[in-house]
Simulated scan of single mutants.
Amino acid sequence: MPLSTLQRRLWTSALVGGSAALLIGCAPLGQPPAASPSPAAQPGAPDGGGRPGPQGSAPGPASRPAAPRVSNAGTPRDYRQDAATHLYAANAERIYAGRLPPNLYAIGVLEVELDRQGQVQRLHWMRAPSHAPEVVREIERTVRAAAPFPQPARLGRVRYVDTWLWHRSGRFQLDTLSEGQD
């Protein structure tokens, strides 16, 4: 059975993260390796299919992004792809896998402003899901928790816009990486 685009991206993120963890765990000869994280902090594999998880499931310590990487995006639109990939990697267990159902709980359009180091400077709702203030708060918390984002090397500071597609289960997709709707 062929893998969906989201599944391929999640596997790629997991492979890159695992390789980075392996390299970080290597120490020069004569030095003890750095302390490894507790088993509770190890990332779990996202469950397959479009099965949503429990309402309000928040990312644990395992979903904290590793050291920031550098983005070579030349435009905010190109940077949006790097930011979405970063958010997916930081929240793998919260991504709605597969095509979204036709009726979503909330849809919001958020502008994110980042500094040269990828730190969140400002969040601005261009279209907030006003019927779901808890979703607004959770999206803002999720974006801030994912910092630092990839450093926008060619852009310096960057402002990008993405659309959040929120399922009632608390799982989401970003329009940039969405698999579409039924």
Rank of each mutant, 00 (worst) to 15 (best):
L15T: 12
A40C: 01
T85M: 06
G53S: 10
G98V: 04
D115S: 04
Y160P: 00
A58T: 14
R80M: 08
R80K: 10
Q31I: 03
Q181F: 01
P102W: 03
A66S: 13
A90M: 06
S178K: 04
R51I: 12
S178G: 06
Y105I: 00
Q7I: 11
H167T: 01
V135P: 09
Q55T: 07
A66Y: 00
A67Y: 07
V143Y: 01
P61I: 13
G118A: 08
R127H: 12
R99T: 15
H131V: 00
R8I: 11
A58F: 11
E93G: 11
A89W: 04
R122Y: 00
S38A: 15
Q81W: 12
A27I: 07
Q42M: 12
E111P: 01
R154C: 04
P102F: 01
Q81V: 14
P32Q: 11
G49E: 10
L114F: 07
L177K: 01
S4C: 07
A14I: 08
G48N: 07
L177S: 11
G44H: 11
L100F: 09
G60T: 10
S4G: 14
L104F: 07
P54D: 13
A35R: 13
Q42N: 04
G74Q: 14
A84W: 00
P33I: 14
P152D: 07
A147G: 03
M126I: 12
Y88L: 10
Q42L: 15
E179W: 03
P102Y: 03
I24C: 03
P59L: 08
R116C: 06
A62Q: 08
W166F: 09
A106S: 13
H131S: 12
Q42D: 06
G98M: 03
N72P: 00
W11Q: 12
L87Y: 03
R99S: 14
S13V: 04
Y105E: 13
P32C: 05
Y79M: 08
R8Y: 08
D82P: 06
S130H: 09
G74F: 08
A34L: 15
A147I: 07
R171G: 01
Y96N: 04
R94Q: 11
P59H: 08
P28W: 10
L165C: 07
L87A: 02
H167W: 05
A62C: 06
T5L: 13
D182N: 06
H167M: 03
P43Q: 06
M1Q: 11
G98L: 04
S57G: 02
P76H: 06
V70M: 04
G60Y: 07
D162F: 04
A147H: 03
G53C: 05
M126G: 08
A73H: 04
A58G: 04
P32W: 09
D182E: 14
Y105D: 10
P68F: 09
G44E: 15
G30I: 10
G53D: 09
D182H: 05
L15P: 00
V158T: 06
R99I: 05
L123E: 08
G44F: 09
R157I: 00
A128I: 02
L87P: 01
L22F: 15
V143F: 03
F172T: 02
N72R: 14
E134D: 15
I139D: 02
G118I: 10
I107W: 02
G50Q: 05
